[in-house]
Design a protein around this nucleic acid. Sequence first.
DNA 1: CGATGAGAGTTGCGTCAAGCAACCCAGCCC
DNA 2: GGGCTGGGTTGCTTGACGCAACTCTCATCG
Lengths: 162, 162
Amino acid sequence: MLRNDYPGQVCSIARSLEVIGERWTLLIVRDVMNGRRRFDELQKGLGVARNVLSARLQRLIEEDILERRAYQQGPERYEYFLTEKGLDLWPALVALLHWGDRHSPSPEGPPMLIVHKGCGGAVSDRGICESCGKLLHARDARPVPGPGLKSAIGNADAVAAR
Amino acid sequence: MLRNDYPGQVCSIARSLEVIGERWTLLIVRDVMNGRRRFDELQKGLGVARNVLSARLQRLIEEDILERRAYQQGPERYEYFLTEKGLDLWPALVALLHWGDRHSPSPEGPPMLIVHKGCGGAVSDRGICESCGKLLHARDARPVPGPGLKSAIGNADAVAAR
DNA sequence: CGATGAGAGTTGCGTCAAGCAACCCAGCCC
DNA sequence: GGGCTGGGTTGCTTGACGCAACTCTCATCG
């Protein structure tokens, strides 16, 4: 996306997309949610241009979706973390993940699954545990590599399963 | 967004965003879901350039998210409808709507609310009716103008409440 | 009969963001 | 002192987006 104002739109969807609708932004959020925290790690994993990644991270910090913290002095090195606002994007990401899985399935099955940390059950498109029925939030779940990822092993750019 | 391939990404979120992550695309889907079906109606409502709208609609039809049907002969005139695949984007849109309402609230309150057609209850961020507890789908709900829209009345571009 | 208008686009041009590669800087490692 | 690592910044090129004008078909008005 280019300029991300949608003039004349009085709608929370439009306002949300102003922030997170830019190319790469939601993928950055997804990666940080999955435990990628450092610039180079994000850059290599996504294949995004470094200047674009830099711009997106700054925007996400301004919008209070990410936080930057130094993890060492000496040469200062930083890690990025999601704020509560960022973590709250989890239901939207889960919905998109399930939509992709349902309507453009990869032959091998979904490349990534989300499971409930508590009981290990699969998480539905609404972020509900299919095993125990609880309504989950970002911290209650974790991603696990699915059957579709196996076909990508050997592909160096594939998401490093973590 | 520009080119919407995310090379080397083996992830359903990335694949979803290849299709619906382009600028305007999700807003077009939202508008069609809310009953806007015609080219000019969409163009005026969104303020998007006509060539861009044309390109997006074609892409959405190729991807089987929208369907185009002639509603009159003579000069052929068309309407756009969501397919099942398109309707299945509803949970993601609801999640984004709620995220926007929670984290960048407009002072007047949310401009749009979603209610359960069956019982009139408010719909949660997970697409669940807060009144009767049912898990809803696109066809079970409808948008109603919220308190935040009143401040925009007189603004000709405001979403025509329908 | 000519003019006007609606609906649904297409064409052409200029601009500005994305992509790419190269560069920078500070510290540590050998 | 040459290279490596982490975290960026700079500069150039390309191509998507925004805007305005144009097209085409039929309907309606005076």
